[in-house]
Every structure is written in C-alpha cells, then in structure tokens.
Amino acid sequence: MTSLRHQPLAHLALAARREPPVADAGVTLRALPYRPSIILRGESGDAGFVAAFRAGMGFELPLDPNRISSHDGVTALWLGPSEWLILGAMGPAGQGRLATALTGHHHAIINNGDGQQIIALSGPRARDVLGKLCPLDLESPDLAPGHCARSILARCSILLHPQPDGAYHIHVGRSFADYAWRLLADAGLTYGVAVASGD
C-alpha cells in the first residue's frame, strides 16, 4: 500500500530533475519521504500518563518546552504542554502498543504522517536562508539540536527541528508543502540552491 502513497511534492518531480549538483551551493533542499507519525495529547502534569508512556515506549516524554527525546528510532517532540509529535515507528503496530499502554489515562492519538511534509534545509547558508522567512532567533541556545520550535515560515505554520549537523528539518502541513518549498528555493537563490532527493 505504501506505493499508493502520493508524496505532497511529487508534482515537482524532484528526483527526476537530476540537476548537476551546484558545486558551491549555499543550501541544499530535500523533500523527505513519508514517515509514520502521530500527534499525542495528554497532560504533562498527569504522572500516570507520563509513566504509562515511559512503560509503553521505553523512554521519557519530553516535559520541558521545545525539547525532544529519542529512543530506538522513535522521536518525541514537545509541541505544547499537552501535545507531542511522535515521529517514526508509528504504524498500526506502534500505535497499538502506545494506545494499550495509555489505556485508562486521558489522552488522544491522532494520525499525522499523511498530513505532513518534512523539508530538509542544509548547507553552510541554511541558517541565513531560514532567517529570511522565520522570525525565530536561530542562534539562540533554545534552538540547539535537542530542541524544536513551532513558528512560521513567511505565512505558514511550521515545526522547526534543528539537526546535529546544522541542517533544519522543517515540518509543514501537506497542503502548504508546495508553498514552503518554493519559498525556500526562492530564498536560497542568493547563495545557490542544490536539490537532493531521498533520505
């Protein structure tokens, strides 16, 4: 069934472009493929809920604002005091395991993977290019790897997930993917843009 899954940026035919890599491109853009993910709702202050998550998933849910935690290919990103994005291994089996663990605690699990596109922005000028569109202080320690932040990219809502290698994973709603991609590609022109495909 995965093959039926249509990628939000398929119309740009990014893989087929095979443009010669821009030798000294300031930034590289990449549309990451589908990853199963969910939004998890529950109360940070509900010790039972937090413990149940730990028991079911084998790691701690990040309770501090804008922090992330990871374990065994699964990453939990803090979105709000009662909201997390759980990224990876959240297909039916993973979801079932989590739902079972959380039984009896007030929570909600909302499928999210189809509704999102992650655009990876990397390269030596990634921060400058992102800084054209996003009002966050990207040099702040609050945005070091290990953190995440919801904000805006020009006029659409994003979740920003800085990577250890200086790249940014920018999560946008599926319907905004084309807009966000074009914004970034245009902003990157100043420093040269390369397009990469795949992971």
Binding site: K132, R155, D178, Y179, L183, D186
Partner: peptide, 15 residues
C-alpha cells in the same frame, strides 16, 4: 521582499 507574485500568500493544494 521575496513574497510577491505566487509567493505573496500561501496557496494550499489538496492531495
């Protein structure tokens, strides 16, 4: 700035 023409405002596309 760069937010002119097609980038003036988000254009949301359905699947």
């Amino acid at each position: 700035g760069g937010q002119t023409g097609p980038l003036l405002d988000p254009v949301r596309r359905t699947p």
